[in-house]
Design a protein around this nucleic acid. Structure first.
Lengths: 214, 214
DNA sequence: ATCTGTTTGTGAACTCTCTCACGAAGTCCA
DNA sequence: TGGACTTCGTGAGAGAGTTCACAAACAGAT
């Protein structure tokens, strides 16, 4: 039974990178790692790492460090990666295809089992093992594959409609790549990744340093 | 002359979404907007929006709201979007091509002027107007186009090498899509977007609610 | 010119997150 | 068995970010 008291959001957001570092260590045959080393590999400082892990439980051994396999197992469990969560990709353009092919998804238990697009030339065909359906087929496809997560990579105009259809079929977790503020019911978790927002933040700092130097 | 005292990171990260909402409003012919309305469109609450904007200056009119064009202009300036910052994409696979094609980049002043890949079949060719170069050509290409930002979309194994080459040529702003912790000198700004991390965070909450319901 | 209604800008309280120092707990060797 | 050494777990304090309530400021009508 793994019910964790309450794990801060900031900690949850870092667990994946700890897990990745641990998996890499295991692949090289390392069996024990100190908070100092693991922190270095994950790009955080050691006290933060220890505090983060302390929210999951006390999995380290003082004087020794952490057992790589054991800690991997626990973080894996905390993140719910023991389960696999099937994914549907809405909008099968350049970005959608890149996401569906992204090996990191399937590797970590998020197989892309279906795609949705409005283009008649794509519907019914299969690209890299991913079948493309028309929007009207969403309810049937979601149910058949027990899909848990929807990814939005449609053009901006279509994204709210796609979200609404996903929500209507019962999907409660959505990862959005379209650059717009989408509205969802309170019980739906929506995470948005806006690619050009990231560039704009870089641009802000570029300008800042440019001003400093003038 | 636009030197802002100091804008909190959290505020900077939200400015792009305010700007997008304002541009949309302008396109529909709206000339004035209240903090309440703009906040709604941007997916934040009104006091937060007002506090964010207050860090830039006092651009609103009490009793009236904000002038859409004026506020757009100011946020645009704050984000440094008056300039254009040319981009080079390293790793021209599925993701790299999708990013290079991403209309949001060029639209917002981040034109992708060049790509880099190790595949001899791609080097020398041009895809969607983006010429592909070999890694050895990076210094020349960066200088010729005055490239300010590098995007990393290579396979994991190649990403640190790509970053090192970019840094060596003088690039100080990097947007990384590979799922690994990269090391850069202190004066280089590195932002990382790990697509599968986002899914893992969704997975965490999915499991949480699954436990709550059991 | 004054009054009413609206909406901004912001100080103060609160929450979330990070940092740091140190006690607690283990290993290893003599 | 005991002492030296290493490394974790954590409480207390600092800092960043968010919320809220309200005074200040403006428009518009009379």
């Amino acid at each position: 039974m793994s019910s964790y008291g309450h794990i801060p959001e900031a900690t949850v957001a870092r667990l994946p990178s700890y897990l990745r570092a641990l998996v890499d260590l295991a692949a090289v045959g390392v069996s024990t790692v100190s908070s100092e080393e693991l922190a270095e590999l994950s790009g955080v400082n050691a006290p933060k790492l220890r505090k983060d892990l302390s929210h999951l439980g006390t999995y380290g051994t003082r004087g020794v460090g952490y057992n790589v396999d054991y800690l991997s197992f626990e973080i894996n469990g905390a993140l719910g990666l023991a389960n696999t969560w099937p994914v549907v990709v809405c909008g099968f353009g350049n970005l959608g295809r890149a996401l569906a092919n992204h090996t990191g998804f399937t590797e970590r238990g998020f197989p892309v089992l279906a795609a949705v697009d409005t283009d008649p030339a794509k519907i019914g065909r299969t690209f890299d093992g991913v079948p493309v359906h028309s929007p009207s087929e969403i309810p049937e496809v979601v149910q058949r594959h027990s899909i848990a997560i929807g990814v939005i990579s449609t053009p901006v105009e279509a994204s709210q409609g796609a979200v609404d259809r996903l929500v209507a079929t019962g999907i409660r977790s959505i990862l959005n790549f379209s650059p717009i503020n989408l509205t969802v019911p309170a019980d739906v978790e929506l995470r948005s990744v806006d690619l050009s927002t990231q560039l704009q933040i870089l641009g802000f700092h570029l300008q800042e340093t440019a001003i400093d130097e003038s």
